[in-house]
Simulated scan of single mutants.
Amino acid sequence: MSQQRHESTPGNPGAAAAFPDLPEATIARLPEYLRALHNLEGSDTISSEALAAAAGVNSAKLRKDLSHLGSYGTRGVGYDVALLIEQIEYILGLDQRRAVCLVGVGNLGHALAGYDGFASRGFRIVALFDADPARIGEQISGLTVRHIDDLARVAAEESIAIGVIATPAGAAQAVADQLVTAGVTSILNFAPCVLSVPAGVDVRKVDLAIELQILSFHEHRKASLTALPGGRAPTGNQEAVGS
């Protein structure tokens, strides 16, 4: 598959192509590196070891990930913090301030709509939708809840790039269909179900129950090991997913 490529990245002429063929695991770790970098207070540089520790990965993995971006650091100095933030934000497209809509303003949706951390991470929630007549017109964080039937019109007006589904599972597929019809090609799904979407539409799933079940497995495993003669619990697994 061909990749769109550019000659350089912002602030670093001649660096690696803007959109290298990044492994999925690397893509998943870039936001962690970015979070750690933003948490640095007044630091001009950071070593790979310090950044890896802050992001919860090993330094060799971090150096390999960042090499895909054309960032190799300087021996004895480390990485330029401001430049690395710029490079990662550019690769992740966070300089676009992408418009996001949220469908489903129940308990979870209401909490997501009121979360002010999205703005600092490069996203704008521009519209809220629901199918419940009792919720239409409700004000949440300065936005008015609209009826789902208005989705196509608002998506065009606001140039919505990403749709977040926070509905019950039974409604999620119909909502996904409406988002796709409205031209939204990236979906974050909080509903506990698998969505069927056309090629070219990207879906990320967040299932809190599954994450708890995975943690339950680790608790069960630790308890089983400590119950054995001479057994002891293993050390924690910081990267159970995406390693």
Rank of each mutant, 00 (worst) to 15 (best):
G122P: 04
H218A: 11
P10Y: 13
P198N: 09
G14S: 01
G230D: 07
S224Y: 08
G14K: 07
L225R: 02
G56P: 04
V154N: 02
S159A: 15
P20N: 07
G78V: 07
F190Q: 09
R75G: 02
R121C: 14
Q87F: 01
P198K: 07
A182T: 06
D80L: 03
S43V: 08
Q178S: 12
S2L: 14
P198Q: 07
L37P: 12
S48W: 10
E219Y: 06
V203D: 02
G183T: 02
G73A: 00
V194N: 09
A240V: 10
N12D: 15
V180Q: 06
A82Y: 00
L128N: 00
R121E: 13
S67A: 14
N39T: 12
T167M: 06
L51S: 02
S159H: 14
E32L: 15
G163V: 03
A15M: 08
A176Y: 02
R204I: 15
R121V: 02
V194T: 14
I148Q: 10
I165H: 03
D149T: 12
T167A: 05
G200W: 01
R146K: 10
Y79Q: 08
D149N: 14
P23L: 02
F19L: 14
R124I: 08
A127Y: 05
L66E: 03
A240D: 11
N189Y: 00
C101N: 06
V175I: 06
R75K: 13
F118Q: 11
E49I: 13
S47L: 06
A156P: 05
A176K: 01
A223Q: 03
H218R: 10
D132R: 03
E138W: 08
F123M: 10
T144F: 00
E138K: 10
D116K: 13
A60T: 15
Y90F: 15
E24R: 12
P10G: 01
G230S: 07
L22M: 14
E32W: 15
R221M: 14
A176S: 01
L179R: 03
P229I: 00
A111N: 12
Y72E: 10
D177M: 02
A182I: 03
E89W: 03
G231V: 00
V201Q: 05
D132Q: 04
S216P: 03
R35M: 13
H6V: 13
N107K: 15
G70F: 04
Q4E: 12
H68S: 09
L40H: 05
G163H: 07
T74A: 09
L195H: 04
A174I: 08
E158P: 06
A172C: 04
I140S: 00
N189K: 07
T26V: 13
D65F: 07
